[in-house]
Structure formats: C-alpha cells, structure tokens
Design a binder for these strands. Structure first.
Lengths: 243, 243
DNA sequence: CGCCAGGTTGATTTCGCTCAAGCAATGTGG
DNA sequence: CCACATTGCTTGAGCGAAATCAACCTGGCG
C-alpha cells in the first residue's frame, strides 16, 4: 500500500506515448519538461479508488495504462457508471476547472498506471500555452456531444438494444479477433455496472444475456464473451431503415 | 422574410446586457468593438429555424431575447428536444469548434433576437484573448456536468417525476408569481416537445397531466399552467430520505 | 367547408421492475 | 478444516408503468 504512493519509473512525459494523441500534444518542449517534473505517476490495483465523490479537486489525472470507471451516485444511493477512462484520457478536469469538489468518483477496474498533475501546474500550463485550453475545449465539446447523443439514445432504445450497443463498444476496446473470425473479450465490468450504464437493473441484464444466448447472438461464461458473427450484432442494432 | 436578413438596431455588443453575464465578459474594449462590428443581429419569428442539422457551421449564435429550442433527430426520425436556449446563451459552438457540420438544429420558439458571429471573428477573438477560450471551457464543462446529471436522472426517475422536474425548471424561467402565492406560466413547448425531453410519448404526458390535475398539483389549460402550492411540486420531487 | 396538427382518452399488450429464492465462488473466524 | 457469511449472478412469479393502436375532439386555415 504505502510504497505505491511513490512516483514510479516510466512516469516521464517526454517519452509518454499517450501524450502524442491527447490534449497535451500542443505543449512545447520546455513545457513538457515542466509537466514531467510536476507530474506524479503511480500504480493502482484493481478496485482502488483514484478520487472520490465529495472530496476537493487537487488536480487532474492522466491514464497511462488500464481502465478506469467514473461513477456518480444517483438519488437513491446507487452508483451509476457514467464513463470509462482509457490510456490517454484525462480525468477530473471538471472539478478542477470549476474549482469545485468532485461530483463523481474514479476507480481503477484493473491494474493501472495513472499520472497526477496538480492544480497549480495545470494552471501554469494553461496560462503559458493558450493552445492547451483550446485543446481541452475541443475535448470537452466532444464529450458533451457524446453525452447528448447518449441522452437521446437512452430515451428511445430498448434495454436490449442499449446493451448491444454497450457490448459493441466494449468489444472494440477489450475484444480480440480469433482466427475463425469470431470475437472474444474479457468483460471489464460486473453485470451491475453494465446495468447502471444502460439505466436498468442487473436482473434485467441477466435476462437479456440469456436471450442473447438463446438467439445465438453471443455466448457468456462469467466475464468471458464470445460473439460468433460480429456483424450479427451490427445487423440487429442498425435496424431502422427510414423511407 | 427578406428584410429580416438585415442587421437590426440594438445589435450593438458594447451595450448588450447579456454580455456582462456570459463568456464574452472577459473581452477588452477594443475586442468588444471588434465583436460589435463582426456580429450580425436579426429577429426571428416563432418557429423560424436558426440553423439546421447537417448544414456547415458558419459561426456561433448569441441569444439576445426569446427562447430557442435545440433538437436532435433520433434514430427513428423523431425530433428530440435536448436543450433550451435563453438570453445570454451562446449556441452552436460545438460544430464551430470541431469544424463539423451541425448535428442539432435550433428553432426560435417565439419572437427572438439572435446575434450571429462568424467563424473567422470567433477564431480571431479566441486567438487575441486566451481568457475567452477558458471561459468557454468552463461553460462547456458546466454543460457536460449537467448532461451527465440528466443522464443519471433519466435512468432512475419515473416519467411523472421527470415531468415535475421539467415543470419546475420551466416555471423558474417562464412563470410569474401571482399575489396569492400561486404561480402561473405560459408553456413555451408543445406536449410532444415536453414528451421528447423526458424520453416518453405525448400520450403519456397527457395522462401525467390528467393525474396531476386529479391530484390537485396543477391545473392545465392549453399552454397555461397554474400551480397553487408551488412547494407541493418540490415536496413530491424531494422524496428520498436516505438512512 | 374539409383538412390537418395538436391534444385527450380508452383498450390492450408488452416490457421491465420488484420481490424472492437459489446457486457458485470466495472469504472468514473458530 | 469445516461452518457460515458475503458477494455476484441467475431465474421465476406477479405486477405496474408505459408503449401501442385507435378513436375522437378542438381550433386554425386554405
């Protein structure tokens, strides 16, 4: 426990591959060096909390490896999984930018490496390099866009369809193609988490899974999922041919 | 029709009250002057389209007066109202910032005045004054936050509860207090629009309204709504006392 | 006048929630 | 090592909320 608090090797931003593809790509060399000095990287084990709802926002987090679950608590106290964070993703900017306490929690779903960049360092960088703010602006705008799309989808899709959508995006991230053209993945999520993501109960997810097996769409065994005909998923989702 | 294309009086940003309270407040004097020269303000009548899904993003819009509906089309072709724009709100930044076509449409719900600021002018200002970008960043972050909250609410609330929530926020915007402590408002929305906002059918909204009248919570007559005991709404919404 | 869009209401059915039981895997304390 | 609790998942039965389908009403408009 204790030794994980230390900064670990591999926390050097100058050679971080993630940096090429995310908001930080606009930093100039000396700014990257500044970032590398300010940032603190550490390992998290499965289930470990990165930050918790209600606590002050001390800085932001950059996922180097692993998968992170962002959850909010609904009005009756159930945690709802609202987003998954993957390598390259920057987490926790909301609280930081708005100067508010965290209103969501983050938990490593498996062994992960996550870098922490404190408030002051972020503000210094935003100040030095205006392009960084614009990068974040684009990123947040994209997220907002997706959130609205999800809002519309949730309002119109059946639970089964929403689950298939979820399965598809998880498959893209966590699945691997086998040599016979079928796909396999190891689910990173419990049924409860998946249920909360599509706004239903875990019992309903169980039933949906049963039906998918009956229909020959997919086979589930614990957290392992096999999909024989990956395009059978797509076909069922892509249903509506207008006019 | 044609003459409305012209810029109209009152479109001078230097004395625009909205500007004090929104993202543009960080502009310096010469930037405001630049904005005032670049911007084009015009009147819209009820039902008129401000921008339409699928078309290129030529710039952003700033609501000076009136109410604007932002809609997306769901997968089966129904328009879904995802947001309402009010005086001071800046609309259409998504498409502009991302350099993409509009993926939502905007329609004036009543007579409105809306200013247009074209792409180049926005980029010039963002470039000149980095604080503007940060203001937008905070604004979009707040929106994102609200979107996630809505996502969680939609997943857990009943239709009746969601409708009461909607009624409450509409009342805050459009309602007026009468001298006997009750509240009255003129609904800016059709039942269909309200239904789409809470992810249900217009028939269901009709039924919910009937029940609310039976329960003495509110009285509806066309688009006019009376609420005798404004806190009776709150009481029904604030239900869950944990532990 | 007929027509149409928006709204209300009714009858029926479907979907998904609730409550409940049971099961396997894992953990814990004696 | 066994007895027992706990956690995650599955399955069943019953019920309630809301979707669907359909009829009908109203006001506005060509």
């Amino acid at each position: 426990m204790v030794e994980q608090r230390r900064s670990i090797p591999g926390g050097d931003c100058t050679e971080c591959r993630m940096r090429q593809s995310n908001e930080w790509q606009v930093l100039r060399e000396e700014e990257v060096n500044f970032l590398a000095r300010s940032q603190k990287c550490r390992s998290y084990h499965a289930g470990e909390v990165v930050f918790a709802e209600g606590e002050p926002s001390y800085g932001i987090y950059c996922v180097k490896s692993g998968t992170v679950a962002i959850r909010k608590i609904d009005n009756i106290g159930n945690p709802v999984l609202v987003q998954l964070g993957y390598p390259g993703d920057t987490l926790g900017y909301r609280g930081l930018l708005l100067g508010e306490n965290r209103n969501s929690s983050a938990e490593a779903l498996g062994p992960s490496k996550i870098c922490f960049i404190d408030k002051q360092a972020v503000n210094t960088l935003l100040d030095k390099n205006p392009a960084l703010g614009l990068q974040f602006l684009r990123r947040v705008t994209t997220d907002l866009d997706n959130a609205y799309t999800k809002l519309v989808e949730n309002a119109t899709f059946s639970n089964r369809t929403k689950f298939l959508h979820l399965l598809l995006v998880l498959m893209n991230r966590h699945g691997r193609m086998t040599n016979d053209g079928s796909r396999v993945m190891q689910l990173p999520l419990s049924r409860r988490d998946m249920a909360s993501m599509i706004g239903t109960r875990h019992e309903t997810v169980s039933r949906i899974i049963s039906r998918l097996e009956e229909d020959g769409i997919a086979r589930f065994s614990g957290r392992t999922v096999h999909v024989k005909q990956p395009h059978s998923l797509l076909e069922e989702i892509r249903p509506v041919v207008l006019e």
